[in-house]
Design a protein around this nucleic acid. Sequence first.
DNA 1: AAGTTCAGTGTACGGTTGTACACCGAACAG
DNA 2: CTGTTCGGTGTACAACCGTACACTGAACTT
Lengths: 209, 209
Amino acid sequence: MVESLTRAERKEATRQRLLDATLQLIANRSLASISLREVAREAGIVPTAFYRHYESMDALGVELVDESMRPLRQMIREARRGVADHGDIIKATVEVLARQVRQNPDQFRFLSRERYGGVRGVRRAIETELRLFTSELAVDLARLTAGFDWSSDDLEMAANLMVAAMLSAVMDLLEVDDRRPGDAVPILDRAERQLRLIALGMSEWRSKT
Amino acid sequence: MVESLTRAERKEATRQRLLDATLQLIANRSLASISLREVAREAGIVPTAFYRHYESMDALGVELVDESMRPLRQMIREARRGVADHGDIIKATVEVLARQVRQNPDQFRFLSRERYGGVRGVRRAIETELRLFTSELAVDLARLTAGFDWSSDDLEMAANLMVAAMLSAVMDLLEVDDRRPGDAVPILDRAERQLRLIALGMSEWRSKT
DNA sequence: AAGTTCAGTGTACGGTTGTACACCGAACAG
DNA sequence: CTGTTCGGTGTACAACCGTACACTGAACTT
């Protein structure tokens, strides 16, 4: 059955099981309330073996941030591609957002749970990644507002507001009961209108020079 | 020394000490990671006496939401008064926000920590209060946009966006190092510009009829 | 083929947790 | 004045926690 994997492969597999187990446990509780023993149990190893992979739950948490940011990064790429196909940037963005959240609820849940609630290390890791995300968006905005001489500070400000609006939608989406997927519609609709409202404001904005 | 308080007064005092102790412990960790025993210890009572006041930490958490929402409600009142004195609504609002956060950091920290990270009961209590807050703002916005025939749905949408922007600023403010209070300035400045950007968008917006 | 590395095991420990139970004594109601 | 109420105490216990330590055996190196 098991086709004699290398040691490194087996280790990697267990590592992944630890991450998955944590992500799954986090669906209902916060990282701080999950014990090392629980995670180990869920991953099918003995508690002390945990230390072969991470020196503490906090360390695992920091790595989990990277892991969970992948769908977010994927989102940016998809959204940019979506813009090419589909004329309406905002509609395309919200659609990508909705799909990514639906496909990776645990990752998004982890990020929203720990963004403010977590341990300092995890919190900072998330904040750093989110800042990167905002900067990338600011770059995109710069392209769209070329010729309107927006200051980079204002671009950052606008991008930050858009990210806040999107994250707010994400968190609301995560509260939607799986058995009533229709509840997601008004949330997405609102997010779309919010982004349009911001875009409308931007078209009238003039940076102080 | 102790002027023979009534039994009810003593009980209320202990209750308050329990709430304060929890708020203080929460400065660094999440509610879920705080034990009943810790809170009791901090409040100066024996663990089993805790049950004379709350049936569990979760129950205490729900009550703490009410307690912590007080500064937020205070904020609305002050902001409305501030508008009367001071012509610039947005500037006045951001100033009130800054002061309230500075004066009640523990309460705001608790709310931001537990809004998404907490137990279901606490989370829902916070969300309910925040929805109320948004509705009140929507009412104020309705007054300001009178004559532009905004739909109530759009008012809600705009209020929700403003609240998201303000809360995002609050959370960033809470991360500011106390020894470097100047770090709060750019955050507040950004929040102000974001609100202005939204207002600008609103002045151009037309609700679908 | 022999020796080394190392992911995972099993046992053991002291510390903390939530909570059950019997109790106390001061504030209370009559 | 007498009996009751009830906030707070003290002891006790089983469950869980993180982690130290000595170990095994299969995957690796030589």
